[in-house]
Design a binder for these strands. Structure first.
Lengths: 248, 248
DNA sequence: GATTCGTCTATTGTATACAATGGACGGACG
DNA sequence: CGTCCGTCCATTGTATACAATAGACGAATC
């Protein structure tokens, strides 16, 4: 005879974060909600989940064998980063990409990335300069090897390092809130316009030079110009107002 | 004899959002997490919860007779707005106010509020102009009546209306993420330096004039200047690096 | 006395069950 | 045939129970 509790399925002892063997490359180690948010964020940024896709908490929770609590929390984090749009009792939608959204994101980035470069130049600590130079070298190597994906990753690291060098925690929080959304467009750019690398590398070198020389205003200007460049490069590749509105 | 379930206390039928009679002026109507976040945010902004105060999910959940789920979610929202700092298994701390934090917040605001004013001036829709003029009149009335609190509220409304007029959803999201933290300092300013009103009102009038005249650059400049003014006015009233580090 | 180690406690992290609600769908009615 | 209304379902919102862990506190050891 079965025990009473079997009537409602296996009791599924709470495993918490330990020993979860989840699907499709998602290997949680620490806090599930954050890990899941990071994982889904990269899926969205690299277009492995298409813009406009509809998701539900239940879907994800079943797919990765988690309870709804961390899944729900993960979606709130993604929403705060602008990667998904929540609508009460109607599911969750991966934020569509559009020319309008691109313009909004880049417009804000020009101000905030510019400010970060400015403040980094004012401070210009030796450790930051060394770190930035190091990353630039890796970017150069990736460019030489023609590895757009590696270049992209190092480029992101370079940007993040500048944020850190600004020493402004509030600014970093804001940039984090827009940076993930921006990454979607930046990824499209490097995927579709790999030759962007050739313009970007010298530009980044000049940013570092300006920071090293404490020329804050110039660091800001170059940063703004680079963003405008990549903006212009991406624009032709965003189709219409709304890409991929049909969910899978 | 008592029923078995009585051994672990009253079953407390799930009331969801209906009929909750909570403590201390908190009257939830819609989604509990959001209502609670709004309520706690205002408590923090108006210093009814002191900077540096330590809280726990359990505390709040007991105080307002809610389960931990919405409480937890509310705290995540507050953390995203920079009003509290979460530390795993060590409780939640109301973000302290400090000169450094003030500088970070105002530095970012100059860029973002400036951009909002700029874009509002580029668009300058009739409805927005009318709305702004209307709010300015209320500000004038509050100033005439010497009502600093009312002036503060209208001033916040004015700022928010400009954000809206920019028509930039991403910018609004970012401003929302920093605005609440900024409000704490803005409130301190109007509380401690009520004469700030006399400078602020003409400044805001000039912003509206610039927006009406489509003079985007000027709108941005005036906005930046006003923020610098209030920054300078607040600074002397923030004591040292960290105010009120002792919890109640 | 200082140090190390275990245990205990406070607090968050996760799982699950139940409530509420917006929208879809179909039937009754004109 | 179109419109309105009720029912049902998918989905999120909330409540609660249980697991894990960081830090405190004390006892044993040297």
């Amino acid at each position: 005879m079965m025990a009473i509790q079997d009537l409602r399925g296996p009791p599924a002892p709470q495993r918490h974060a330990a020993g979860v063997v989840a699907a499709a490359g998602f290997r949680p180690s620490g806090v599930l909600a954050e890990e899941l948010a990071r994982f889904l964020a990269s899926e969205i940024i690299f277009c492995e989940i298409a813009p406009g896709t509809r998701l539900t908490e239940e879907d994800i929770s079943a797919r990765y064998r988690l309870s709804r609590s961390p899944v729900r929390e993960a979606f709130r984090l993604l929403a705060a980063d602008g990667l998904v749009v929540l609508s009460a009792r109607r599911g969750i939608r991966v934020t569509p990409v559009s020319l309008r959204d691109l313009a909004e994101v880049q417009g804000c980035r020009i101000e905030l990335e510019g400010l970060a470069a400015y403040q980094a130049a004012v401070k210009a600590r030796a450790a930051d300069l060394a770190g930035l130079r190091n990353i630039l070298e890796q970017m150069g190597a990736a460019l030489a090897a023609g590895d757009a994906r590696a270049y992209f990753n190092h480029n992101v690291a370079f940007t993040t390092r500048i944020h850190l060098a600004s020493g402004n925690a509030t600014l970093m929080r804001l940039l984090n809130g827009i940076g993930k959304q921006a990454l979607r467009y930046r990824y499209i750019a490097y995927q579709r316009v790999p030759q962007l690398m050739r313009v970007s590398l010298p530009g980044n070198r000049r940013i570092l030079a300006a920071i090293r020389a404490h020329e804050a205003g110039r660091a800001r200007e170059i940063t703004a110009k680079l963003i405008r460049n990549s903006w212009a490069a991406i624009e032709p590749h965003i189709t219409g107002e709304d890409i991929a509105p049909e969910a899978e």
